[in-house]
């Protein structure tokens, strides 16, 4: 297990390096740079622009720029954001935390709903509830996140529900007590988390139902039934553990769609996360910020995949990594 872990972490190094190369060159391909926008502004002197150009190293050739950026990256310095005029690390830290909070909340909603509902659907196959849940799953799968968010916001405003429509905190947030602050954030979290959560609930629930059905029809469950075990014990003790295995692998895949889905949901609901930052950075040609966003997103993804592999090994004694 230990050697496996070390090997996996070692493999991550070239992978992340390749991702850094790819994200750097994609951003270089993009026409114009941040300074071009400043050049169009007659209030900014060409002296200042030249100074900025040499300061950010934009006048050097791209390979030099890449190596310089990589070197700084390895020292934990992600460069300076053009538009915020502060180090990228300062901008990105809180954004990652916000996306993490959102993804975590969505995941709790998704898994918390999907597993019990999936089990129920499988054990009550073709019942009215099962059919209802299946239709719900199809609707949930088919509704684009950003559209669902728009509809929720529309309903909130239309029926004047006491919920915020944008952002992460209230204007009065700084004057609140810590408990009120927490409640305030939770209130703002509700819409984006529900949007993201239901999207994954639908697919997870279907997977859970399928896995559970596969397991329930297998021989050892028949044996358990023949032995006269209680149905509860059979489902939760014998079937569930085996049905959960493939779900853990899904956890890794889900992370990718969660991060991607979060980007659009954040934009619509104004949640200040990594995806929303990435969009502004890409639009404003703030290359260091965009590259850092891509690196951090990828980093979260590969770490998530690693964690899901390790969880799989912990849950299934048959899987041994060496």
């Amino acid at each position: 297990m230990k050697t496996y872990l070390i090997r996996r972490v070692l493999v991550l190094i070239p992978l992340l390096l390749a991702i850094s190369l790819l994200s750097f060159f994609i951003m270089q391909l993009s026409p114009g740079n941040y300074l071009d926008q400043l050049r169009l502004n007659p209030d900014i002197s060409s002296d200042l622009i030249n100074r900025l150009e040499s300061e950010y190293g934009l006048n050097q050739n791209i390979f030099h720029q890449y190596l310089h950026w990589l070197w700084q990256l390895l020292h934990g310095n992600l460069g300076e954001s053009f538009s915020y005029r502060i180090p990228v690390t300062e901008v990105i830290g809180s954004r990652i935390a916000n996306t993490f909070i959102l993804s975590l909340a969505a995941m709790i909603i998704a898994w918390g709903l999907a597993i019990p509902l999936g089990i129920y659907s499988a054990t009550h196959r073709y019942s009215i509830t099962d059919n209802f849940l299946s239709s719900f799953a199809f609707i949930g799968l088919s509704i684009p996140n950003f559209f669902f968010a728009l509809i929720l916001l529309f309903l909130i405003v239309k029926y004047s529900l006491p919920l915020p429509v944008s952002g992460m905190t209230d204007i009065m947030h700084d004057f609140m007590s810590p408990t009120e602050q927490l409640l305030d954030i939770l209130r703002h979290l509700l819409v984006p988390a529900v949007v993201l959560g239901t999207a994954s609930t639908a697919s997870l629930m279907r997977q859970m139902r399928g896995q559970m059905l596969d397991v329930i029809n297998s021989d050892y469950i028949r044996t358990a039934r023949a032995k006269g075990l209680k149905e509860r014990t059979i489902i939760y003790h014998h079937a569930l553990r085996n049905a959960l295995n493939p779900m853990i692998t899904l956890f890794g895949y889900q992370l990718s769609s969660l991060l991607s889905g979060a980007a659009l949901t954040e934009t619509v609901t104004g949640w200040p996360g990594l995806g929303k930052m990435m969009l502004t950075a890409v639009r404003g040609k703030d290359i260091y910020l965009a590259m850092a966003g891509m690196m951090m997103g990828s980093f979260m993804l590969v770490i998530g995949n690693l964690i899901s592999d390790l969880l799989l090994a912990l849950n299934d004694p048959r899987i041994k990594y060496d």
Partner: peptide, 25 residues
């Protein structure tokens, strides 16, 4: 396969955003 892994390791929408920004207007 390593190439495929790299593409798969970048959150798809982030990659799309970056690539779409490359397009000239």
């Amino acid at each position: 396969m390593r190439l495929a892994e790299i593409v798969m390791s970048i959150p798809s929408f982030y990659l799309l955003l970056a690539l779409a920004a490359v397009l000239p207007l």
